[in-house]
């Protein structure tokens, strides 16, 4: 059976799980390990962590978090952010990650993909493509968590990354990310139709129906962030640490407009009812 994976995506800044819109304006939501455990128990197929400030500081600070999570979460853990060398990958795997996601360092030095695939195997190397649609209809790739414009065509880059040995491609739509308007199906379809490795669609999920759209656009796996995090917050006590970041959002108990929170369980139920093959517990 060819199943579709449902991945919980956690953007992390320092000790906190954060969420922005278009990868900006980060709100503090709570402690990532607490959310992780909830997603594991709900039946998430994989957990994907992104250190959103790693490229800026040129280091990934998630080693301790990953070691902690790996002790209770026996599903694949993927970690991205600031991974720049074979040594960085080694350290992250040693901390307990199963795969690493690379964007900035791979665009700057594509041969890192083939080197890393040779040492660790293709399936350990995920290439993260952050793309934004241009006025002429093309998609360009960005780095440093959507901050830096590269001028690289995102579709061609994804194809090149797959040819160099990436085991899978996670495609983030910067335009749709955090908005709840749905996945960028044009972007997903363009990339998935040209690469022979699995494609993870990320950015924009706001209601279960968006899953069907992404599957029709040939996504092989789906990553969810806002919808899951807001579902957790709606059903659990806050786990936010007060010391750091913008917690105003949590304190004011603000509501969400475009996003209707739903859980991993809701996702699996929707997929099951719509004959989309997926893992059930």
């Amino acid at each position: 059976m060819n199943t579709v994976r449902c991945i919980a995506r956690l953007d992390v800044k320092g000790p906190n799980l954060v969420k922005g819109i278009h990868l900006e304006g980060l709100r503090v939501l709570g402690r990532p390990e607490v959310f992780s455990e909830y997603y594991y128990k709900q039946g998430a197929d994989e957990l994907f962590y992104q250190d959103v400030v790693a490229s800026l500081y040129e280091r990934n600070g998630l080693h301790d978090l990953i070691s902690k999570v790996a002790k209770f979460s026996f599903i694949p853990l993927t970690v991205g952010g600031g991974i720049r060398s074979i040594d960085d990958i080694k350290k992250m795997l040693k901390a307990g990650a199963d795969k690493v996601a690379i964007n900035t360092a791979a665009i700057n030095n594509p041969s890192l993909i083939s080197e890393a695939a040779e040492v660790f195997g293709s399936s350990t190397i995920v290439i993260a493509v952050e793309a934004s649609k241009q006025s002429d209809g093309s998609y360009l790739a960005y780095t440093d968590n959507g901050r830096e414009h590269t001028g690289v065509d995102a579709i061609k880059w994804a194809q090149q990354a797959a040819e160099l040995g990436a085991g899978e491609i996670v495609v983030t739509s910067i335009d749709n990310e955090g908005t709840g308007v749905g996945f960028d199906t044009e972007l997903i379809n363009k990339i998935s139709s040209t690469v022979s490795v699995p494609v993870i669609a990320h950015g924009g999920a706001g209601k279960p129906e968006h899953i069907t759209d992404a599957i029709e656009a040939k996504a092989n796996a789906l990553a969810f962030a806002s919808v899951l995090h807001y579902d957790y917050i709606a059903n659990n006590d806050s786990s936010a640490s007060e010391e750091e970041g913008n917690t105003e959002f949590l304190k004011k108990n603000m509501s969400f407009n475009k996003i209707k929170p739903f859980s991993i369980k809701d996702i699996k139920k929707y997929m099951h009812n719509n004959n989309i093959p997926c893992r059930t517990l």
């Binding site: 059976m1 060819n2 199943t3 579709v4 994976r5 197929d45 293709s122 399936s123 085991g167 899978e168 998935s192 139709s193 690469v195 022979s196 490795v197 699995p198 494609v199 040939k218 092989n220 796996a221 997926c278 893992r279």
Partner: peptide, 16 residues
Amino acid sequence: SNMEQNFKVPQIGWNL
């Protein structure tokens, strides 16, 4: 692998 049927390789995921 078979692109027309969206059959990708490697298999990365859950199966029976």
